[in-house]
Design a protein around this nucleic acid. Structure first.
Lengths: 222, 222
DNA sequence: CAGACCTCCGCTGTCGACAATCAACTCCTG
DNA sequence: CAGGAGTTGATTGTCGACAGCGGAGGTCTG
């Protein structure tokens, strides 16, 4: 697993090389949410660095970033550990997430551009599609929805904090996969949120988002 | 300005040496909020490192931390720059801050421990004192209040995000110092918040906090 | 045999040096 | 004299190496 040659195409087509640190941040996040790195696991810098084909320098910088985002915790002279969330932590995270995303949904309903709403409609279609076929492919659009709502809120701060929280929540969800029934429910709830935003109804958008998040938390803690 | 010998006394009295990175984070924050590092300024790693008496390694890690917290921005191969806030940015920050701190105030009114309320009362006294004498010493208690409210909310997530935002706001306030009149106003508003929390009245606590933040934003943008 | 002490190994925290990249300046050219 | 290519200096991105702390496991002692 080396990432030295992972180049990336910049907006204008020029080939640009992302700093190793940035790439490492991405890989680490993936390793955490995919369960390769479980809660409480110690992060061995030397091992991980050679695994990624980079040196410890950029890796340590990446770890700091993850630390500020709340993914890992530090112990004096013991290094970084993948954060393990207590049920209390999860509750607290959802409490904040509700604040953030309800506001975001409401703002999105007010501020979304036409093309934003258009993208929402595409999500409706995609969601519909998933609903009619299988539910295993649900997660991608799940995150897409929440990310899109945050973006359409038009408030970058809200977006930044919201996505951080959203990704952190995955930490809790890694182990406890949800049932197919709940997945279907969630998708229909998404539909409600989307249509409220598309209809430009802030109140309803906020209400639906709140309901959605509360049910999600219930499922998670059950 | 070297920080190699800046030891720190741990909770139980044992002398502990903070990692250079942590100390650097603190110093950098101070340099930003105190105006030594102005918005848009480039951060020269070599200079700053030798200025602090450390090497670039820990410093770079510290900068990453600050980056995740929104203090500095990165440009490809150009390094880190102190973030400069547009009026839009400030508005967005206050929008989120209102969400967070209003909730925090309301929660604090519900959840605060007895000793928490006790500390609030001490703040009332201190604030009263400042009100009666000069107003130049106002800032410390200003930040103390908001920090305390966040802490008493009992939600660590809320606290973390809230303090981040609060410190960032200082970025905007560095240049535009507020008038003594506004400072007095702010203090009386604080009194309202405090007493609402001490009375354990969540509604009023939230309402007063909201009013306070809105006026603060008005002053800032004026 | 249990518990305190000690030793050794692995790992983090830190450093200095090299390579890659960008910005500014110079110099050439029309 | 204006504009562009080449050059140079400064600064970031990256790496490998060393020192010191902490924990695992062995050893000594009561």
């Amino acid at each position: 697993m080396s990432l030295g040659s992972d180049d990336v195409t910049a907006p204008h087509g020029r080939l640009t090389r992302m700093p190793l640190r940035e790439q490492a941040v991405g890989v680490l996040r993936d390793m955490v949410v995919s369960g390769v790195l479980g809660p409480g696991d110690r992060i061995n810098e030397a091992d991980l660095a050679s695994q990624l084909g980079i040196s410890r320098g950029p890796l340590r910088e990446a770890i700091q970033r993850l630390g500020a985002e709340g993914f890992v915790e530090f112990r004096q002279n013991r290094g970084a550990f993948v954060r393990s969330l207590s049920p209390e932590d999860v509750r607290h995270m959802y409490e904040v997430r509700e604040l953030i995303e309800v506001k975001a949904a409401s703002l999105a309903a007010q501020n979304a551009t036409e093309e934003g709403v258009e993208e929402m409609r595409r999500l409706i279609a995609a969601t519909d599609e998933v609903l009619r076929t299988d539910t295993t492919g649900a997660y991608p659009t799940e995150y897409d929805l929440h990310a899109l709502v945050l973006e359409l809120s038009g408030n970058p701060q809200l977006q930044r904090i919201g996505t951080d929280l959203q990704v952190q929540v995955r930490l809790a969800r890694v182990r406890s996969g949800r049932s197919p029934e709940r997945a279907r429910e969630a998708l229909t709830e998404h539909l409600q949120i989307i249509s409220a935003i598309a209809d430009r109804d802030p109140r309803r958008a906020g209400r639906e988002m709140r309901a959605h998040l509360r049910r999600a938390l219930d499922t998670l803690t059950a």
